[in-house]
Design a protein around this nucleic acid. Structure first.
Length: 264
DNA sequence: AGTACCACCTGACGGC
DNA sequence: TGCCGTCAGGTGGTAC
């Protein structure tokens, strides 16, 4: 689930119902979610404090902690935030819970345990340590042009490379390329000016609209490829059938007619 | 450098 | 109904 739009939705959720309330208790039922920090230090950094602001860079969600430091959350493949009332039944696979004094709670749920949480002192250190490129929504047209020009790989792999630009994963890379009518196997550096322009415009449009629709696939347009990720499915534009291939172990979908293998 | 493949985990789904 | 293989929107390490 969690690519840039999903994480942005989680950020807004946290900003709406998780800030400016003192954290009475920090629950960490299983420390495998914690990376590079002990349960004691993690809980100690948050207990009796408030979260004062939220931020996001790529697929990472941040929350400033009153008095210093930042809570950092990554959602892996299956993670999400569940703002809840402490009396309502707890969702299974809850890995973290911030108990606020007023009875509300912010739960971090992640069935596959591929997500992670920590606390850091400085955000720019974290971005550097994780080797993250600029956030995909902060990338200017010139930035994207340079990223593509400097890459020797395929355009799909480049969009998904978090060190080049942060936030785009398997699903949204396919969608952006479909909307921009560019074949996923094209070499990034071989795109012409028109294609780079389309790619930049569609990156912003696809991510922006997905955020507006709460990153809920059912609320996204039926004309999007995302709703038709199936080998042999009909192209949403009516241009033949959707094709499938494996790109370094990930399932990739595209329309060979809409997204030609060259710009010839 | 780029790509393929495995590992980390768990759950859902289709075939038998 | 139960078992089994396959796949899943992420990332990191290793081997070509």
């Amino acid at each position: 689930m969690p690519e840039l739009p999903d994480v942005e939705v989680f950020r807004r959720r946290l900003a709406h119902s998780g800030l400016h309330k003192s954290i009475a208790r920090v629950e960490v039922p299983d420390t495998t979610v914690l990376h590079g920090i002990s349960r004691q230090r993690f809980s100690g950094a948050l207990r009796s404090r408030q979260l004062t602001a939220t931020g996001r860079h790529g697929k990472y969600l941040y929350a400033a902690i009153e008095g210093g430091g930042y809570l950092v959350l990554h959602f892996g493949m299956t993670g999400y935030l569940d703002p809840r009332d402490r009396t309502s039944p707890r969702v299974s696979h809850t890995r973290l819970a911030l108990d606020y004094g007023d009875g509300s709670q912010m739960a971090y749920v992640d069935s596959r345990r591929l997500g992670k949480a920590t606390v850091v002192d400085r955000l720019d250190d974290h971005v550097a340590d994780e080797d993250l490129g600029p956030d995909a929504l902060e990338l200017s047209h010139a930035d994207l042009r340079d990223v593509l020009r400097e890459s020797r790989g395929t355009v799909k792999a480049t969009l998904m490379d978090q060190s080049r630009m942060a936030g785009i994963g398997n699903i949204y890379s396919d969608e952006i390329l479909f909307q921009a009518r560019i074949g996923p196997k094209r070499k990034a550096a071989a795109l012409d000016d028109t294609e780079v322009h389309r790619l930049h415009r569609q990156t912003r449009r696809v991510l922006g609209l997905a955020i507006d629709r709460k990153a809920d696939p059912e609320r996204l347009p039926d004309g999007w490829l995302l709703r038709h990720r199936e080998d042999g499915a009909e192209c949403p534009r009516g241009n033949g059938t959707v094709a499938y291939f494996k790109a370094s172990g990930r399932g990739a979908y595209y329309c060979p007619t809409c997204q030609p293998a060259s710009n010839g």
